[in-house]
C-alpha cells in the first residue's frame, strides 16, 4: 500500500514540486483531455506529449521504478478491454486508420498518457496541497472535506484489513468457496463496524477542539500565482497546442 503512495515523495525544494497546486492541476488535467481527443494516427503528437512528461519526470526527479509499477498495475485492466480488438474489428476500407490495431493503439497510448500525467501530478504534489489547490479553484467545501476524510482514513483501514487478512491466512484459511465468501464478508463487516466507531471517535476529537460543523479543514485565503507559475503554465499549454494542432502528419 505504502509503495503506491505517490504523493509522499513530494519534496518542497524542487522547481516542479514547489509550483502552486493550481498550476499543476490546470496544466496536467488539460493534457489528459487534449491527448484523449487526439486521433490515434497523430503519432508525433503522442510522442510530444510523452516527451513533455519525460522532461517533467526528469526535472522533478520522480523515481522511475514507481512509474513502472503504476503502468504494470494498470496494464492487465487496459489489455482486458483492448487486447481482443485486433481480432474482432475489421478495417473499414474507406478509412486507413480504422480497424482493430488502430483501436488497440488508441486505447493503450491514451491510457498511458493519462496514467503518466496523473502520476506526475501526484508524485509532485502532496494530497493536502492538492486539496488546497482545488479549494482555491473553488471546488465545493463539503466535497473537499469528505475527500480529505476518505483519503486520510483509507490507509488506516487498509492496514487494518491487511492485518485481518494476515490473521486469517495464519489460521489455514481456505476450503470451500462459499465458506471463503462468508469469512470475507465477516472481515469486511468487522472492518465496517470498527471504521464506524472510529468515525464516532474522530467526531468526538473534532468536538473537543471546538468543531461545530461550519468550519473547513484548511485555510481559505487565496494566494496569487507567482511568475514561475504563469511561465510554467503558459509554456506547457503552448506545447500541448503545438503538439495537438501544429503537427502535420
Amino acid at each position: 500500500m505504502k509503495d503506491t503512495l505517490f504523493d509522499q515523495q513530494a519534496s518542497p525544494d524542487n522547481f516542479i514540486h514547489s509550483l502552486d497546486p493550481r498550476t499543476k492541476i490546470l496544466t496536467l488535467f488539460p493534457l489528459i483531455f487534449v491527448s484523449t481527443s487526439t486521433p490515434p494516427q497523430f503519432l508525433l503528437s503522442f510522442g510530444l506529449y510523452s516527451l513533455y512528461l519525460i522532461v517533467l519526470t526528469a526535472l522533478a526527479r520522480i523515481p522511475i521504478k514507481l512509474l513502472i509499477k503504476r503502468f504494470l498495475m494498470a496494464l492487465p485492466f487496459i489489455l482486458m478491454v483492448s487486447a481482443y480488438l485486433p481480432f474482432v474489428e475489421q478495417q473499414d476500407l474507406s478509412n486507413p486508420y480504422s480497424g482493430g490495431w488502430w483501436l488497440f493503439w488508441n486505447m493503450v497510448i491514451k491510457a498511458f498518457i493519462g496514467i503518466y500525467a496523473m502520476s506526475v501530478l501526484t508524485a509532485t504534489t502532496r494530497f493536502a496541497k492538492l486539496i488546497q489547490g482545488f479549494a482555491r479553484l473553488r471546488a465545493p467545501q463539503l466535497l473537499l472535506m469528505l475527500l480529505s476524510f476518505t483519503y486520510r482514513y483509507m490507509f488506516v483501514l487498509v492496514e487494518e484489513a491487511q492485518r485481518m487478512k494476515r490473521a486469517r491466512d495464519a489460521r489455514a484459511y481456505g476450503g470451500r468457496w462459499l465458506w471463503q465468501a462468508k469469512v470475507i464478508g465477516q472481515m469486511i463487516g468487522t472492518l465496517f463496524l470498527r471504521s464506524y466507531e472510529r468515525g464516532e471517535r474522530v467526531y468526538l476529537a473534532m468536538c473537543s477542539r471546538g468543531y461545530d460543523g461550519t468550519q473547513s479543514l484548511w485555510q481559505n485565503s487565496s494566494e496569487a500565482l507567482g511568475r514561475r507559475d504563469y511561465a510554467f503554465a503558459l509554456s506547457s499549454i503552448s506545447v500541448f497546442i503545438l503538439a495537438r494542432w501544429g503537427v502535420v502528419i
Partner: peptide
C-alpha cells in the same frame, strides 16, 4: 461529515 468520509474509506 466524518462518518460519510469514513464510509468512503471503508
Amino acid at each position: 461529515v466524518p462518518l460519510l468520509g469514513m464510509t468512503g474509506a471503508f
